[in-house]
């Protein structure tokens, strides 16, 4: 996700759905040369409290819709490890609905 949207995950997903068992994982692609220092400074600015990890090459292995669209990219995975939602931008209403389906 671009920096504009990334902090929104805190309020849009992590705060409402974290207590219900949803895990949010920010996956740093490092695709623009970010190092640990850059990433730490960025996270300090954004104040997010969910888990942030480095990608290990999985980013390019998903069938993202609208392949020409830039970041963000989101994959929602259910308890069985199956992808239930893929998006190439942060669409909070859609994402919320996709999460709620998994919590029903």
């Amino acid at each position: 996700m671009c920096s504009l949207e990334f902090p929104d995950l805190e309020t849009d997903v992590w705060e409402p759905f974290g207590p219900q068992g949803v895990t949010v994982v920010g996956v740093a692609t490092g695709g623009f040369g970010e190092d640990a220092e850059t990433l730490a400074a960025f996270l300090e600015q954004t104040n997010v409290t969910f888990l942030v990890v480095w990608d290990d090459g999985t980013y390019g292995q998903y069938a993202w819709p609208d392949a020409l669209s830039p970041f963000p990219r989101q994959a929602l995975v259910d308890r069985d490890g199956v992808v239930t939602y893929l998006a190439s931008e942060h669409r909070p209403a859609e994402l919320r609905e996709a999460v709620e389906v998994l919590l029903d």
């Binding site: 671009c2 949803v22 895990t23 850059t38 989101q74 995975v77 308890r79």
Partner: peptide, 13 residues
């Protein structure tokens, strides 16, 4: 995922 659904949010800074 054993703990529940997981959202993987790929981002750059």
């Amino acid at each position: 995922t054993e703990q529940g659904p997981v959202l993987l949010a790929y981002f750059a800074t």
